[in-house]
Design a protein around this nucleic acid. Sequence first.
RNA 1: GGUCCCAUCGUCUAUCGGUUAGGACAGUUGGUUUUCAUCCAACAAAGAGGGGUUCGAUUCCCCUUGGGACCGCCA
Length: 459
Amino acid sequence: MSFNCRFAPSPTGPLHIGGVRTALFNWLLAKKNKGKYFLRIEDTDKERSKDEFKKQIISSLSWLGIEHDGEEYIQSKNINKHVAVAEELIKKGFAYPCYCTEKELDEQKALAKRKNLPFIYNRKCRDLKEKKDGPAVIRFKSKMSGTTLIKDLVQGERNISNSTIEDFVILRKDKSPTYQLSATVDDHEMEITHVIRGDDHMINSFKQKQIYDAMGWEVPNFAHIPLIHSEQGKKLSKRDNASTLEDYVKIGIISDALRNYLLRLGWSYKDKEIFTKQESIDLFDLSGVGKSPSKLDMNRIYSINETYIKTIDEKDLFNFFKEYVSKYKKPIDQSKENILLKSMGFLKNKAKTLEDIWNNAQYIINDKIEIGTDDKKLIDDLSKKVISDFTSDYEKLPSLSRETLEPVIKSLIDKHKTNFKGVGQPLRIALVGSRFGPGLYDVILSLDKTEVIKRLKQI
RNA sequence: GGUCCCAUCGUCUAUCGGUUAGGACAGUUGGUUUUCAUCCAACAAAGAGGGGUUCGAUUCCCCUUGGGACCGCCA
């Protein structure tokens, strides 16, 4: 059996986090089964589709490591084919022109709403004998009796009574195809074998199945994955503040972590939590996908991100960091690259996100440190004495290492009859600008000797 | 309102009729530590309710309740 999967977003906005997961599942299923994963841009809504969104979607997916096979497929380029299929459906008696005006339909909808009745197009034009003049949409002649069954790979057997499916529009008044038609024709043309999409598409599958049947085409496998809900328990919408991929990237989530999080949201494999990309391909299966919607959990995202930050290669981490700050903060000065790279090992220890690393690294990135008012208050006369004592000892040290530094600090603790905090805190404030920050030895050893002395003498 | 769907700790989930219902995140407590954090240990935390089926139900069926999706000449 071949596996041709696709992700088919419409370029009408930035990539949605639910869409990212749909793409991921499609990609995973294809890779797992040595099949193909295609990207199809559904740009048949001329008003709302934007080229910038198309580019953004492609680059977002690629950022996540989801690369599609072949060129991306642009739906609008295949419109002629869609229209031809519509005409064929008319010829076969499966579709008909409908002359009802939008105003008429709106009135019917309003009436239905007022009476609390379900609205379904009344099929007024379904059996017109004569062709009329004037603008018309083309509607699909939906079955009026019987039931349609879909054996969904995630949801199981789903049954619906055909009478509840209305005669949906397949060609607009301006003769442009609608989603139901275009998606079906393209899935057929692309020889898609597995359609994985959000559960909100379930009803569309029933409609589209009728088109496949009418055309005598083979119906693909469907898998409707449960939706991702906001923390309020509703379908994630653009209004939610963590809804787009960008929302996660900009707070410093790295791609592997997000991929891992999304994979485990609605899917599981035993008790395993962390999956490398390759493991996710090897282990993924539609049977592991749950049926109920899942809520987004920022704590879990941070936690997984932290795990990745702490375990990936430091050079890779540095490259992610560099990419992140140049996009969302401030590009790293060439002269600082080396020291930052060398310092990743301890900067990452206190970080859940790339943004945390950025904050931890401020004392390296900025040549001038600013001491907060609260911290300034902690610098008393004893502190100043400690700092100047340390400075003179430090200047005399023949070599710098944790081993040579430690005795210096210890002797200062003894001399001033204090504890580590009494010595460490003022030094950290002098060097970092805050009583919080990386370990003291790490800080001292990461900076140039002249820089350390400069900062100490400024107090 | 109609149609369809879902239901295990706060959250993500394991269990595929027999378990002290497991793990992870978050939470609480204690310990290590060089601030902060890490790290370690412990604790707390769930089968919505009611009927069946069965020797036995979280697991299978039905009802109730709760939640969700869809109901565009958007996709």
